[in-house]
Nucleic acid binder design. Structure first.
Lengths: 283, 283
DNA sequence: GAGTCATAAATACACCGTACATCAATTGCA
DNA sequence: TGCAATTGATGTACGGTGTATTTATGACTC
């Protein structure tokens, strides 16, 4: 009595038909695997018992979720809201999306898949890495909820299109004598950095939506709170924060600054007189 | 009819005494502000109607929350669980903690406050920045839920002790001719990077707790999923991922690698022949 | 027509944060 | 000495969440 997919023990299998899967997620996975086996993923009709046309599919669910998050922010994103937006019952979503967590992944994947990095990229490793970072940053600007989702899942999102960015970055730097492990680390480091720099964007987007406080007001209030609680004596630098520091700490500027520092640091790994590399992907 | 703290409209003020605050959070804020006004914050007694001793205080609540998160992970952290751990009613917490979101901030602040950076730090800007990053990293290792909380709030946590890290970092690099705005950016960039590099730690901690999958199993499963869905042809680099890449992408190693690249990049901002600076804080 | 199966949905459960009303205890003041 | 004000602590309840379980419906094969 074990789930056919994940092998977990099956609970409450007493009444009715014998159960085969431990959860809807596993059942859905099995179903999708069965669908994926025949070589025609574009034409899923003519399945036994399948209605003439399905009202839903995974793409529609994911697109609706992305649109909702874009429109009303990550706080409004829930299975119920997505379902009502689509005009279907809540549980209908679970036929196409194994769980809320995997919906998050699918949303991230959809956004990245819609904007792949160009092939071939520009010339020169630095221009390439810069482009890849800037393009990812642009995605976070347009979909601020993404940086939130990435962190909320307590694990890196399982999104092939995001992995494609990593792959592209590795190829962007390949051919300069760096070993494979270093390429991995550079690519991951860049993605990690862009994501982290984008986290404040989610906050600003939410604040702009609820029109509660602007970032400036918030920074001012926080500064005053610090002045009251800790006293500026202990934080001499923070005590001098003014317009200049505020401007410098704007997410956009932090991103730009850190990006260049990081690229500079990567440059030091490479042999100094390296001539410009050939086209991408030629190893 | 507006809240005396935030000015928001007061709903449902018909029956009973007229309300003065829009929420318990505001009422608590007003109460705390009133407590802070007299110049003796250590001796708040002799208030009218104040009981002799309170069973709870903010410190106990925050400590219980931190202990709970350490013990059972961020998923188990809720107001109800904290309350039962303390043996009090749920709503009793709200007398000392304005809201769940601010409890998050207080938890982060408590952890950072318990481990301040040393004064004076070591010699040399690089050793200092490295120490500050490594010490923050150590905190995330010990309290993996922190990286999660930082991101969940959709805004940087309001934690003075965390701001103290920023201040320390700015002082660590001060005296090398960098302008104030650049100091701000360096300090924020380092903190941002450490936090983001720590996000996978939360995942691993949770996985280890539920003993579902190890990181190695998870990476393997993900690789197979990619091979099935996208096909390795489109991701030539990822297709070659093996033990070496797995080892390289270990959070600890990503952190170390990125830290050194970042410090290298910062070093390029400084004049090359700069002699070692004097003791910290001398401007 | 019976049986099998996938779709879709309704219901239900356990949980969350927290607004609200209430109670007893304490104190200052009339 | 009473009374009003104020606080700590709490119980109850509301509207929300993700999703397990169950049921109804239709389409297909035999």
């Amino acid at each position: 009595m074990a789930c056919e997919v994940c092998g977990r023990e099956l609970r409450t299998a007493e009444r009715g038909r014998p159960r085969r899967y431990c959860s809807r997620a596993c059942r859905t996975r099995a179903y999708r695997a069965r669908l994926a086996e025949p070589p025609a993923p574009e034409e899923p009709a003519a399945q036994p018992g399948r209605p003439a046309e399905a009202a839903l599919d995974q793409g529609r669910v994911v697109r609706a979720a992305v649109a909702l998050a874009d429109r009303e922010g990550v706080a409004a994103l829930s299975m119920r809201r997505v379902a009502t937006d689509l005009g279907v019952g809540v549980m209908s979503l679970y036929r196409y999306v194994p769980s809320r967590e995997e919906l998050n992944d699918l949303m991230v994947d959809a956004v990245f898949a819609a904007r792949p990095l160009p092939e071939p990229g520009p010339d020169g490793w630095r221009a390439r890495l810069e482009l890849s970072a800037r393009q990812e940053w642009e995605l976070y600007r347009r979909h601020p909820w993404m940086s939130h989702l990435v962190a909320v899942t307590t694990r890196p999102p399982v999104a092939p299109a995001l992995m494609a960015y990593t792959d592209w970055r590795m190829r962007a730097l390949d051919g300069h004598g760096l070993d494979f492990a270093t390429l991995v680390q550079v690519a991951i480091m860049i993605g990690t950095y862009v994501q982290s720099a984008a986290v404040p964007l989610a906050h600003e987007a939410q604040a702009a939506r609820t029109s509660r406080h602007t970032r400036r007001e918030w920074a001012q209030a926080r500064k005053e709170a610090f002045a009251r609680s800790i006293g500026a004596a202990r934080l001499p630098m923070v005590a001098e924060f003014g317009d200049e520091a505020f401007e410098a700490s704007e997410p956009e500027n932090i991103f730009e600054f850190g990006l260049h520092r990081m690229l500079d640091g990567i440059g030091l790994l490479l042999p100094p007189d390296q001539s410009p590399p050939g086209p991408m992907g030629t190893q």
